[in-house]
């Protein structure tokens, strides 16, 4: 019993230690990247994040000046600390860079590139295009235009 208690204590201490190693230091950037369907990163330290925003794509490195942006459909590239790059397609959402160098990317829907299906994207693009052509009013036209834009981006990402 006592032996088990000791083991547990050691385990707890080890756990604390790993947490501490993960916590961001002054010149590190903690990324939270979550979508309605999945959490990709939760306060994990990464090297760089590239995001597509409505006012143009931009890269975020540690100590980036604080900013806000809204996402446009496209690929978010995350370069992890060990140099591994992770490409994730996001539909839309927000990006926040705070003054403590923490970054929050919140998307409505996000999927790794390998989950995209080229054929399905092509199909939904043609459907969206025909909807755009037959749109009766401004609102329907704007909606169809967004759909076309998204489908084109998905197709581009899925082919690339």
């Amino acid at each position: 019993m006592a032996f088990r208690g000791v083991l547990r204590n050691v385990a707890r201490r080890l756990q604390v230690r790993t947490y501490a190693a993960d916590a961001p230091k002054g010149d590190e950037m903690a990324l939270t990247f979550a979508a309605g369907n999945k959490v990709f990163y939760d306060k994990q330290v990464v090297k760089q994040v590239d995001v597509p925003s409505l006012s143009g794509a931009f890269g975020i490195l540690p100590k980036h000046v604080p900013t806000l942006a809204v996402l446009r459909p496209g690929v978010v590239t995350v370069i992890e600390n060990d140099g591994k790059t992770n490409k994730i397609f996001v539909s839309s959402g927000t990006v926040t860079v705070n003054d403590d160098s923490s970054v929050q990317v919140l998307a409505e829907e996000a999927h790794p590139l390998e989950n995209l299906d080229r054929g399905a994207a092509q199909e939904s693009l043609s459907k969206a295009q025909s909807e755009l052509n037959s749109a009766a009013n401004d609102k329907a036209k704007a909606e169809a235009a967004i759909a076309v834009e998204v489908a084109e981006e998905i197709l581009k990402a899925a082919s690339g």
Binding site: A34, N37, V39, T96, D99, D100
Partner: peptide
Amino acid sequence: LKAARPYGEGAVQFYER
């Protein structure tokens, strides 16, 4: 909820910061 927590925390971060 586990999946939504980082989402919610991320959303309020800006208003706090």
